[in-house]
Simulated assay, not measured.
Amino acid sequence: MPSGAMFGLAVLVLILAIILSAFRILREYERGVVFLLGRFYRVKGPGLIIVIPIIQQMVRVDLRTIVMDVPTQDVISRDNVSVRVNAVIYFRVLDSQKAIINVEDYLQATSQLAQTTLRSVLGQHELDEMLANRDMLNTDIQSILDTRTDGWGIKVSNVEIKHVDLNETMVRAIAKQAEAERTRRAKVIHASGEMEASAKLVEAAAKLAQEPNAILLRYLQTLTEIASEKNSTILFPLPMELLQGVMEKKTQVLKKTSNKSKD
């Protein structure tokens, strides 16, 4: 084959390769940020797009929600307790132009910002709040991240604190505190029950005092309840009113005996 024909064929193949390289296919969740001679041109996609080789360059951007694991951070709470906390954030790119032009690497920038924000927000709260009010802390962190990443074209949709790890000493201290709290509640409940019972007893005593025979009926009922348990020994309170007549007669007999002795 003549050299001229070979050269022509090579040029033809090169032209076809350049033409084919100009065609790009972007998926539904992708966008292409196109630069024309180094300057921003437009955002293209999805589907089939044409990028002129050499003159134009394209950067792909994924618009799907990204799940990023925030590395474990050492945090000192407001009450001077050292804890290790990690979290996960959910975010996505809303503005492809800002995500490529306004920040060098939006993934790395978002990760670093999430770590510093996690330490800053949790450091303003006490340990009890970290353990009990995670929803509030998640909302605060998400709001701060969403505001600061708005200039990067990123929307932070959710933040979840996964683990709050404590050392063994603090775990034992929290266990003692929880035990003391349960003991306190038990004493308060017992005292409250005693107060309610005393009020009911006073009310019952007032009703029994209105009828003299009512207390005797109550004694007999108590004796029946005790006897049903087959006890060998029964201690039964006896009202002094029942012995009043016997005591009076005994006193009269003693007085007569004393008078006779004097005579």
Rank of each mutant, 00 (worst) to 15 (best):
M1I: 10
P2G: 15
G4R: 11
G8P: 00
G8M: 10
L14T: 14
L14W: 12
L14E: 09
I15S: 15
L16H: 07
I19R: 13
A22P: 07
F23W: 09
I25R: 10
R27I: 05
E28S: 09
Y29K: 04
E30R: 01
E30S: 06
R31L: 01
R31H: 00
G32I: 03
G32P: 05
V33W: 12
V34R: 11
L36R: 13
L36K: 12
R39Q: 03
F40D: 10
K44G: 04
G45C: 02
I49R: 00
P53W: 07
I54V: 10
Q57V: 05
M58T: 02
M58I: 04
V59Q: 05
V59W: 04
D62R: 01
L63E: 00
I66P: 05
I66D: 03
I66W: 01
D69G: 07
P71G: 01
D74Q: 10
V75I: 14
D79I: 08
N80C: 09
S82I: 08
R84V: 09
F91Y: 12
L94G: 04
K98F: 13
K98C: 01
A99G: 00
N102A: 14
V103S: 04
E104S: 12
Y106L: 03
A109T: 01
T110F: 04
T110Q: 03
Q112R: 09
L113P: 02
A114H: 01
T116I: 13
L122W: 00
L122H: 02
H125R: 09
N133H: 09
R134A: 02
D135A: 06
L137Q: 07
N138T: 01
N138D: 11
T139W: 04
I141D: 00
I144D: 09
L145I: 11
G151W: 06
S157P: 07
S157Y: 03
H163F: 05
N167P: 04
T169R: 12
T169S: 13
T169H: 15
V171A: 14
V171R: 15
R172V: 06
R172E: 14
A173V: 14
Q177I: 14
Q177P: 04
E179N: 03
E181R: 01
R182S: 05
R184Q: 13
R184H: 04
A191N: 10
A191I: 03
G193F: 12
A199Q: 12
A199M: 15
V202M: 07
V202T: 10
A205D: 02
K207H: 05
L208M: 08
E211V: 09
L216R: 05
L217A: 06
R218D: 08
R218N: 03
A227H: 02
S228T: 10
N231Q: 10
N231M: 03
P237V: 11
P237Q: 09
P239F: 07
M240Y: 10
E241V: 15
L242H: 14
L243G: 14
L243T: 13
L243N: 11
Q244P: 00
K249D: 10
K249L: 08
T251H: 09
Q252E: 12
V253M: 09
L254C: 06
N259F: 08
S261L: 14
